[in-house]
């Protein structure tokens, strides 16, 4: 029953993304745009060239971030783990601004090419600094290590931005993650990476569950904690890197989705992973559509919408942590 709700949210997200926006489109238009596309019909053009890529980007980025959040939270046993908190966004932004500074004005292809390694390096760094591999990272360690790296990268970004005004133009629109320029992003290629990351996560799921019982017990059950952690980190990096390349920084989706997925799927990690992919895509699409409708014709970018929802969720979770659980 709860599973149906999750799927329903995803379907609602898909339908709303196609139907709603500045230009009014009827369900019949959507049907005809797919069955008998007419390049002269503005409604069909809107659907096929603007909203469909947007839908694709939302599905890929949302599912990837939902999955990455669940893997991360299971791996670290930390309800505050989220790719954004762990420095992914700052890392990607840093790489892009550096590229824009060194190479002149950045185009979308360059941004994508730079976002991935920046995101991957930063998330790996925070994970290691926060004691992630020791297997008993408390919620606060990782969060604060992420905050520290964020601060460092932000001040370096700030220095670069003030050296050249053009880089600020690149930065301030990139930093607010969005699905709007989806057509210029490599959604297809990134969906393959997401697929690979998702497969790896699903294969790892039983061993991750064993690991979440504690490193010693996992070793007793015949698994190798270090290897599993490294593989899980690889999956997380692939997933978040792909999401950042497609949509830019989308904050807090990886924080909000896993608890919802656990609620929907119960305590079976494989089912949880599937649920988090569905919910991640659904929430992102709904947030994106809502952002387009709040102040038309201006749009509040999806990354800002998720951050505005996610900030309070973060506070709520932080408050619920018992003092003992914080160690």
């Amino acid at each position: 029953m709860k599973g149906l709700l999750a799927v329903g949210l995803l379907i609602a997200g898909v339908v709303l993304t196609l139907l709603l926006g500045v230009r009014t489109v009827t369900p019949a238009d959507v049907w005809h745009a797919f069955t008998a596309p007419d390049p002269q019909n503005p409604a069909h053009v809107t659907i096929l060239w603007i909203r469909l890529p947007r839908l694709g980007a939302g599905l890929v980025a949302g599912a990837a971030l939902g999955l990455a959040g669940t893997v991360m939270q299971t791996l670290t046993r930390n309800p505050l783990a989220d790719p954004g908190i762990l420095g992914v966004n700052a890392g990607a932004s840093f790489a892009i601004v550096l590229g824009a500074l060194l190479l002149g004005q950045a185009d979308y292809g360059l941004m994508t090419a730079l976002a991935f390694p920046g995101a991957a390096l930063a998330s790996a760094a925070v994970f290691l600094l926060g004691g992630g591999l020791s297997g008993d990272a408390g919620p606060i360690r990782l969060t604060l290590a992420g905050a520290a790296l964020n601060a460092l990268l932000l001040s370096l970004i700030s220095a670069m931005v003030l050296m050249r005004a053009e880089t600020l133009e690149v930065l301030r629109f990139w930093v607010a993650g969005s699905l709007s320029s989806a057509i210029e992003r490599p959604v297809g290629a990134m969906s393959l990476i997401v697929l690979a990351g998702a497969t790896l996560a699903l294969i790892l799921a039983p061993r991750l569950e064993a690991l979440s019982l504690g490193a010693a017990l996992a070793r007793g059950l015949g698994t190798r904690p270090g290897l599993i952690q490294a593989q899980a980190l690889l999956a997380v990096t692939a997933l978040t890197g792909a999401a950042v390349s497609v949509a830019g920084p989308i904050a807090f989706l990886g924080l909000m989705v896993p608890p919802l997925a656990r609620h929907v799927a119960g305590h079976d990690l494989r089912r949880e992973l599937v649920a988090s992919a569905i919910l991640g895509a659904g929430v992102l699409l709904v947030a994106d559509t809502a952002g387009r409708l709040i102040f038309p014709p201006a749009e509040v970018r999806a990354g800002i919408m998720t951050a505005l929802i996610g900030g309070p969720v973060f506070i709520w979770i932080a408050r619920r942590l018992k003092p003992g659980a914080q160690t």
């Binding site: 919620p139 969060t143 301030r172 807090f252 951050a307 996610g310 900030g311 408050r319 914080q326």
Partner: peptide
């Protein structure tokens, strides 16, 4: 104290998200 620190970070995240939004609305 740590709850306070974490809630502070959370408020920081939300305010900077709003700040990011405002930055996209400004002239160069």
């Amino acid at each position: 104290a740590l709850t306070l620190v974490l809630v502070g970070l959370g408020v920081g995240f939300a305010t900077s998200a709003f700040g990011t939004f405002l930055m996209t609305r400004l002239s160069t």
